[in-house]
Design a protein around this nucleic acid. Structure first.
Lengths: 145, 145
DNA sequence: ATAGGTGCAAATATTTTGCACCACC
DNA sequence: GGTGGTGCAAAATATTTGCACCTAT
């Protein structure tokens, strides 16, 4: 559970909007949310928090390392809780579901590649886009063509 | 060199803007360009092609498989020629340089991961963000702190 | 001739910012 | 009580679309 001290630790005042937004990421069943997603959840709870504040808070949380910002192919930025452990993403292009994975061997090879190219890696992200289990035409069923 | 027939093959009329834009991607030393980049190059050559047309053509080329659209962390879409061979990207967060690489082992593991999760992969992209050789503080030199 | 393509301007979508007011410490 | 935070509206940025005119086939 998020506490006021968590925010103070990163130099931010513990205000209601910040606590609420952080709490949303911790409790929502959707780990990956856009600013609009967050805003709509707040509206749904009758909280009077402006969209501009949502953007500001999300950016602050990202800079503080509490959240990670992704750019999936939608064009909107998507945020998720930074739980320390790096991982990559499988994104369903049909229903938008996001699954996470981690593969040590891939990480190792990424590091090797960066070194070979003389790059000092700061972050990396990998997205596999496709159809998730539920969105694939079922085997044995006819397609509509 | 791009030819009118290349465009007709994909069901598009061979118009001057389309031929020119395709040619730009084939001849420019910058493989990765935003719509604005393309537009500015056209303006620089005194070609009277609207930004809207650039966006329309880039989208058509992407749908036809001639170009690939990326979403780097900049927030703008970046396009590059689709040369058949899939590859991934090292992106310099300072100077914007993009280097490409391909690693068969990583590809293999991506496929295995997708299968394990029941995903039917349509595309994937991997971006390693960091400082390229030229943008790293040189070894032995003092930092400014 | 005509279906499709284009430029321009206006519309949309996403994110940022200026400003007056308000709340945490 | 003052610094920092907030909501709102407006601005900035990126992209799409409506429309009248134009052009490749």
């Amino acid at each position: 559970m998020s506490k006021a001290s968590d925010l103070k630790d990163i130099g931010l005042k513990a205000t209601a909007p910040r606590l609420k937004i952080l709490n949303l990421f911790e409790t929502s069943d959707q780990r990956h949310m856009t600013a609009e997603d967050v805003y709509r959840l707040l509206i749904a709870e009758d909280l009077d928090i402006g969209l501009a504040t949502v953007y500001r808070v999300l950016t602050q949380f990202e800079q503080a390392g509490l959240l990670v910002r992704h750019h999936f192919e939608s064009g909107k930025a998507v945020f998720e809780l930074n739980q320390g452990s790096h991982h990559d993403h499988l994104v369903c292009v049909k229903c938008g579901k996001v699954e996470e994975f981690f593969d040590a061997e891939i990480e190792k090879r990424q590091d090797a590649i960066a070194k070979k190219h003389g790059f000092a890696i700061e972050s990396h992200s990998m997205y596999l886009y496709g159809l998730c289990k539920d969105c694939q035409p079922a085997k044995g069923s006819k397609s509509s063509f």
